[in-house]
Design a protein around this nucleic acid. Structure first.
Length: 525
RNA sequence: GGCUCCGUAGCCAAGUGGCUAAGGCAGCGGAUUGCAAAUCCGCCACGCGUGGGUUCAACUCCCACCGGAGCCUCCA
């Protein structure tokens, strides 16, 4: 059992026990992790990206600490909402699911989420789902009723242990289902198909899986009956995860998951209510459903949907950094301004990388860094800069060890950037740099990049829109010419001309900076 | 109504039973610069929603209140 002991003092907050616990894996050095993915009935909004970015970071960190992680994110591609939406659009449910899955994947890619190992689809797992339901019936935890199959909540004395709720709290689906259930808290494992609905044959007649069962079935087939981490949004704790947990625990007579991790939800900047959520409802009043078209507009105005334009405007890295600046369990307010602020903060790093790159004569992004925690070797008798960075690295890692405190850890990143800038300033490296100071700078940057890589940022150079477009070469050539003319003017101390050029360019959106090694420019957003 | 969580500077935000309460944005002063920008140095909460309590010691634990959020509806 010795090898099961953590090599590093990782602690994880567990929703099940409502406390931080030392991280212990079921198998030595291996982690099975499952995140509830999207129901692909509409384009993803920012809220759908929180979990993937968080757990992408969790996987990066665990891998860095020497674990071999298998991360599963499911795609729910059969569901009432899919059926309704597909009908509205006049396409099949499968076409809709394919389109929306592609949208989801492209958003993940833009945000640098590339650590997912398996993305099982519910419709590819029907056999496993049916088998799971049958086992629950055989073991007496579920019953068939007129083509539906329900989980019998009364049979599970521990029901409610995750959300601290009783089965009575569960309203279940409305409509006709209630009459077929033994008690209101029972939930559907299998739903009989109405005419024209997508369906699969089963021992209980044609139908489709209930919402919760797919996660139990797919996680079992990939990760086993018990696995290490199950994640999702805080809004899934009840009923989804409660029900999943109940099904799996009853079926296997053992815990489903060691650590339940839940991320906080996004809120819109202007009004109450999470992004993409339902509109507000006064307690005690009957739910007032806003008209569908208005609800859609409200959602959009709150930042829901339109992720593609958001990414184009702010870049995926900026959105990712924004999400990781706060603690994953807290609620954060989302909007253009917080995003712009995150962008302003990131500029510090981009500028540091640019000035360092000029000094070193290479791209900072090409500097190698440790990819495993154990790989890092602190230099003996380090120069002051590196001693400081090693200390900041320790600080960063101790925050990550404590329930993946990415928000706290970013402080050390800024401190690192300041130390690096100070070093460049003090050694006047932009005027002349010797090999020794270059090597020190290089090592320092390597540490900064090592930590940044754990957050999944600064992995590749940001491509500016200018270098992206067809006219990039033209712009490049023009700028060289303009800057050359301006340099001549400045050499002649003709500041009126040089300032006129700078002001003029600023008006067309180009910002320039005079430095020791010449003038740089960028297209300011 | 039940179950959770939160309230830290102008704004965002980390954190803690006892060290100067991180960091970012904005702002201010200085170094630097032809002037800017950037960078560096310094300043910016005698204070952690309010009122009690526990304790040698509380922003941190407990209680009440005020304010906010989520869930109890197939939401991530």
């Amino acid at each position: 059992m010795q090898e099961n002991l953590p090599e590093y003092p990782l602690r994880v907050y567990n929703t099940l026990t409502k406390s931080k616990e030392p991280f212990r894996t079921l198998a030595p050095r291996r982690v099975g992790m499952y995140l509830c993915g999207p129901t692909v009935y509409a384009e993803a909004h920012i809220g759908h990206m929180v979990g993937p970015v968080i757990f992408d970071t969790v996987k990066r960190y665990l891998t860095y600490c020497g674990y071999e992680v298998t991360w599963v994110v499911n795609i729910t591609d059969v569901d009432d909402k899919l059926i309704v939406r597909a009908r509205e659009k006049g396409i099949s449910m499968f076409q809709l699911a394919t389109q929306m899955t592609a949208d989801y994947l492209s958003n993940l890619q833009a945000l640098g989420v590339d650590q997912i190992d398996r993305m099982p689809r519910a419709t590819d797992s029907i056999g496993e789902i049916i088998a799971f339901v049958q086992e629950l019936i055989d073991k007496g935890f579920a019953y068939a009723s007129q083509g539906d199959v329900f989980f019998d909540v009364a049979k599970d004395p521990e029901y409610g242990c995750l959300s601290n709720r009783s089965a009575d709290d569960q309203q279940g689906e409305g409509g006709g289902a209630a009459s077929r259930k033994r008690s209101a808290g029972d939930f559907a494992l299998w739903k009989s198909a109405k005419a024209g609905e997508p369906s699969w044959p089963s021992p209980w007649g044609d139908g489709r899986p209930g919402w919760h069962i797919e996660c139990s079935a797919m996680s079992r087939s990939i990760l086993g009956q018990t696995f290490d981490i199950h994640g999702g949004g805080l809004d899934l704790v009840f009923p989804h995860h409660e029900n999943e947990l109940a099904q799996s625990r009853c079926c296997h007579s053992k815990p489903m998951v060691t650590y339940w991790m839940h991320n906080g939800l996004m809120r819109a900047s202007n009004e109450g209510g999470k992004v993409g959520g339902r509109s507000q409802q006064t307690p005690g009043e009957a739910p007032v459903a806003p008209p569908a078209d208005v609800a859609g507009k409200i959602s959009r105005s709150k930042g829901a949907g339109g992720l593609a334009s958001l990414i184009a405007k702010h870049t995926g890295e900026r959105i990712r950094f924004f999400l990781l600046r706060t603690h994953y369990r807290s609620t954060s307010v989302f909007g253009d301004e917080p995003l712009a602020e995150a962008g302003a903060a990131l500029e510090t790093f981009y500028r540091l990388f640019e000035r360092s790159g000029k000094i070193l004569g290479c791209s900072v992004y090409d500097i190698p860094h440790a990819t495993r925690r154990s790989e890092f070797q602190a230099p003996a008798n380090p120069p002051a800069l590196l001693a400081e960075l090693v200390q900041l690295r320790d600080s960063f890692l101790s925050k990550m060890d404590d329930d993946f405190n990415t928000g706290g850890a970013t402080a050390d990143l800024f401190e690192m950037a300041r130390a690096l800038n100070r070093f460049i300033d003090q050694a006047k490296m932009e005027e002349s740099a010797n090999d020794e100071s270059r090597e020190t700078l290089r090592s320092g940057l390597s540490i900064l990049r090592e930590m940044a890589s754990l957050l999944g940022i600064f992995r590749k150079p940001l491509v500016s829109s200018a270098t992206h477009s067809d006219s990039a070469d033209v712009v490049q050539g023009l700028m060289e010419l303009v800057l050359h003319l301006r340099a001549e003017a400045r050499a002649k101390r003709d500041f009126a001309t040089s300032d006129a050029i700078r002001d003029g360019l600023k008006k067309v959106g180009i910002a320039m900076q005079d430095g020791k090694q010449g003038t740089t420019w960028e297209i300011a957003k």
